[in-house]
Amino acid sequence: MFEARLLRSSILKKVLEAIKDLLTQATFDCDDNGIQLQAMDNSHVSLVSLTLRSDGFDKYRCDRNISMGMNLGSMSKILKCAGDKDTVTIKAQDNADTVTFVFESPNQEKVSDYEMKLMNLDLEHLGIPETEYSCTIRLPSAEFARICRDLSQFGESMVISCTKEGVKFSATGDIGSANIKLAQTASIDKEEEAVVIEMEEPVTLTFACQYLNYFTKATSLSPQVQLSMSADVPLVVEYRIPDIGHIRYYLAPKIEEEDS
């Protein structure tokens, strides 16, 4: 028997919004410690890793480890049926082929439950090595979303270059080029609005704008986003979800082709 109860459905709704454009289906692995999701997008260039710790739930029970393959489009449709203030409970029997979502309104007057068929998905877990990154940049998530949106108008790929002066995002395309420089905030009044750069070595990498735009769908989950980069390894974009876990996106850098 698996049962997980969240007081506010909005967290789950936002998580789904954050992944459903990138992934069509994914496996939720549930165990004693919480719910984990790891999946690559169809083109196999990015990886999503989601962790929701059991202590973040109002009630959490997982008798046996269970993996639930879900169609994220369908799951998102179901979660749209829940009000923001509703309590959501995810339930599944051991070895079940369906999962049930129960939504309860705050005054308990309305209870709705939705049953969804599970899918058998090929499990392909990747081991992500612990990496010491040369650069870590923390910035307000809305700022990052804005940068990605603005730069994607200029070109398909974005160069992120981190030096001791700060971090520079740039894109070049048919209409011209765009550069956005961010320097470390001098005085930290509000932690949420700060730009913090930790750098050991300067790094410059190129990424597909489109994918960064997909990642910024998670903006509403967290006021801050952390970018970690090292030469020739994937970029990590991490959103911490307050009190319950995090969502990490990994994106492989673009290959520099000689002829382009």
């Binding site: 454009d21 990138l22 690559m40 997008d41 169809n42 083109s43 196999h44 260039v45 990015s46 990886l47 392909e124 877990h125 990747l126 081991g127 992500i128 090595p129 398909e156 790929s157 990424f207 597909a208 704008c209 489109q210 994918y211 997909y214 390894v233 994937p234 990994y250 994106l251 492989a252 850098p253 673009k254 290959i255 082709e257």
Partner: peptide
């Protein structure tokens, strides 16, 4: 949408080139 994503992915290495399968 998926086609646009595939197009955006062109020129990028696959993620499994970095992370080994468990």
């Amino acid at each position: 949408k998926e086609k646009a994503r595939q197009k955006a992915a062109s020129g990028t290495k696959t993620i499994s080139a970095f992370f080994k399968k468990k």
